[in-house]
């Protein structure tokens, strides 16, 4: 048996098939995960994403039921349709996970994010910042003679747009909470 004539670097040269079969459409989905509020549960969820190479675009987590010890994790993730299905199935397998909802496919939903933006400036820039904040319904949380801290709530896109406008006007720092989401209607 002689050596096979296989080009170095081709996938046949490897112990694994190196071609990625999932190099197609990437979608963004918002997942709501209800978990037991116990030590390490967030690490389990995050570890699943990093361990299996999934993406996290945004993450929020807080206790939602003190007596029932439940927390809700909202994750915005991206991937091909089959990867998104895999993410949901893998999340469902984690022992302290009670429910996994894909808000992107389970009917209409509302998504909101809160951000705090510190904008420093004087003169016209300061006036313009305040005017734009008014248009975006951002409120002033703190003010000095040379700075504002704005609070804004809305979709991630709205916050992106506001931050983009504030950048030339002296944006110093921004803190965002990540997306919280709920399905519309009674269910």
């Amino acid at each position: 048996m002689s050596a096979l004539k296989i080009k170095k670097g081709s996938s046949k040269h490897s112990a694994y098939d190196l071609r990625d079969p999932n190099a197609d459409v990437i979608e963004s989905h918002t997942l709501a995960i209800v978990v037991d509020n116990e030590a390490g549960v967030l690490a389990r969820v995050i570890g699943l994403f990093s361990g299996r190479g999934y993406n996290i675009e945004s993450l929020t987590v807080a206790e939602i039921d003190h007596l029932g010890h439940r927390s809700r994790i909202t994750v915005v993730t991206t991937g091909t349709p089959s990867v998104i299905e895999q993410i949901k199935a893998q999340l469902g397998r984690i022992v302290p996970v009670h429910e996994v909802h894909d808000l992107t496919v389970e009917g209409p939903s509302v998504e909101r994010e809160l951000a705090l933006l510190k904008v420093a400036g004087e003169g016209d820039k300061r006036v313009e910042a305040l005017r734009l904040a008014d248009i975006f319904r951002a409120s002033v949380m703190d003010s000095t003679l040379t700075s504002f801290v704005f609070e804004i709530t809305g979709t991630p896109e709205k916050i992106d747009a506001f931050a983009d406008l504030m950048r030339p006007l002296g944006l110093v720092e921004i803190a965002r909470t990540g997306v919280a989401a709920l399905s519309r209607g009674t269910e």
């Binding site: 296989i6 996938s11 098939d17």
Partner: peptide, 11 residues
């Protein structure tokens, strides 16, 4: 001695 049959990876 080699182990056969064998499907090379990627085949």
């Amino acid at each position: 001695e080699n182990c056969f049959p064998m499907i090379p990876s990627g085949e």
